[in-house]
Amino acid sequence: MGAASAATVVGTPLVSATQVVSKDCQKTTAKVTASVRGVTNDKGGKDHVQYQLWDDGVMKASYDLWVTVGQTVKPTVVMEFSGLYATGRTGVGIYLVDTENKRTLVSKDPFVPSDTTGSCTPTAPPTATVEPTSTPTTSTTTKPTTTSTTTPTTKPTGTVTGPPVVTDGGQPPSNDNGRLLLGGGAALSLFAGLAFVLGRRLT
């Protein structure tokens, strides 16, 4: 069976990130504006995608968006966490993924936030929200169902800030299988040679 179709991003997404540095606190903010079209019925006629903000191998904030199949929505998702980025690796990782089909729709990693001034709340918990002005681009009046999660615990693998991109490639045959086939061919050739020699002696 072929892989299930993933949600699609229409057009070019707009990605930005800032870092507030003040005498009272620090805050890192990322924004993603993208037109997302629902393709696969993951649950209840909706396609499930997730926005993710990573730093130093840890997912700091995420936002789950459920898009009605056949509908295109264009929200601006804002993800924030307290503290400075790049205490380990360069920049942050900003992703939009189709979670059920394990496809990366948007990947900006590393993405270096620009420094700015402003106010923030010290030790505030991570947040992930949709800006109130975000509306669907279709004529429908229903809004997509959304939920937010901000306490992920798993770490990704690889050397980049965020998770590795999942590809559709299959696994190549192992070298052990290749050696097994080679050994079997050599054995068949040896038996054929012995039979030929014995045949000549008998005649």
Rank of each mutant, 00 (worst) to 15 (best):
residue 27 K to L: 15
residue 27 K to E: 15
residue 28 T to E: 06
residue 28 T to V: 11
residue 31 K to F: 12
residue 31 K to L: 08
residue 31 K to W: 09
residue 34 A to W: 11
residue 34 A to R: 00
residue 35 S to Q: 14
residue 36 V to Y: 08
residue 37 R to H: 02
residue 37 R to C: 04
residue 37 R to Q: 14
residue 37 R to T: 14
residue 38 G to L: 09
residue 39 V to K: 04
residue 39 V to M: 10
residue 39 V to Q: 04
residue 39 V to C: 01
residue 39 V to D: 04
residue 41 N to F: 09
residue 41 N to T: 09
residue 41 N to V: 05
residue 42 D to Q: 01
residue 44 G to S: 08
residue 45 G to F: 02
residue 46 K to D: 10
residue 48 H to F: 07
residue 51 Y to Q: 03
residue 52 Q to A: 08
residue 53 L to F: 03
residue 56 D to G: 03
residue 57 G to A: 09
residue 58 V to S: 00
residue 59 M to H: 06
residue 59 M to A: 06
residue 60 K to Q: 13
residue 62 S to Y: 11
residue 63 Y to K: 13
residue 64 D to S: 12
residue 65 L to Y: 12
residue 66 W to C: 11
residue 66 W to P: 01
residue 66 W to L: 13
residue 67 V to K: 08
residue 69 V to D: 11
residue 70 G to D: 05
residue 70 G to F: 06
residue 71 Q to Y: 06
residue 72 T to F: 08
residue 73 V to L: 04
residue 76 T to H: 11
residue 79 M to R: 10
residue 81 F to D: 14
residue 82 S to P: 10
residue 83 G to K: 02
residue 83 G to A: 12
residue 84 L to D: 08
residue 84 L to M: 14
residue 86 A to H: 04
residue 86 A to W: 03
residue 87 T to D: 08
residue 89 R to A: 07
residue 90 T to Q: 15
residue 91 G to I: 03
residue 91 G to F: 06
residue 91 G to S: 11
residue 92 V to E: 00
residue 93 G to Q: 08
residue 94 I to G: 02
residue 95 Y to M: 12
residue 95 Y to T: 10
residue 96 L to H: 03
residue 96 L to T: 12
residue 96 L to V: 11
residue 97 V to S: 13
residue 102 K to T: 10
residue 103 R to Y: 03
residue 106 V to G: 00
residue 107 S to A: 02
residue 109 D to Q: 01
residue 109 D to A: 06
residue 110 P to M: 09
residue 110 P to N: 05
residue 111 F to S: 14
residue 112 V to Y: 02
residue 112 V to K: 08
residue 113 P to Y: 01
residue 113 P to D: 01
residue 114 S to L: 13
residue 114 S to R: 09
residue 115 D to G: 08
residue 115 D to L: 14
residue 116 T to P: 03
residue 116 T to Y: 06
residue 117 T to C: 05
residue 118 G to F: 14
residue 119 S to L: 04
residue 120 C to V: 09
residue 121 T to W: 00
residue 122 P to M: 06
residue 122 P to N: 13
residue 122 P to I: 06
residue 127 T to S: 12
residue 128 A to Y: 03
residue 129 T to L: 04
residue 131 E to W: 05
residue 131 E to L: 15
residue 131 E to M: 15
residue 132 P to G: 07
residue 132 P to V: 14
residue 133 T to P: 06
residue 135 T to S: 15
residue 136 P to V: 11
residue 137 T to Q: 07
residue 137 T to Y: 07
residue 137 T to K: 07
residue 137 T to F: 03
residue 138 T to C: 04
residue 139 S to N: 07
residue 139 S to R: 01
residue 140 T to I: 02
residue 140 T to V: 03
residue 140 T to G: 13
residue 142 T to N: 08
residue 143 K to A: 10
residue 145 T to E: 14
residue 146 T to P: 03
residue 147 T to S: 13
residue 150 T to V: 12
residue 150 T to K: 05
residue 150 T to Y: 09
residue 151 T to N: 13
residue 151 T to L: 08
residue 151 T to A: 05
residue 153 T to S: 08
residue 153 T to I: 11
residue 156 P to L: 00
residue 157 T to E: 06
residue 158 G to A: 01
residue 158 G to K: 01
residue 162 G to T: 03
residue 163 P to A: 07
residue 164 P to N: 09
residue 164 P to Y: 02
residue 165 V to F: 09
residue 166 V to A: 10
residue 167 T to M: 02
residue 167 T to K: 01
residue 167 T to Y: 00
residue 167 T to D: 01
residue 167 T to C: 00
residue 168 D to H: 02
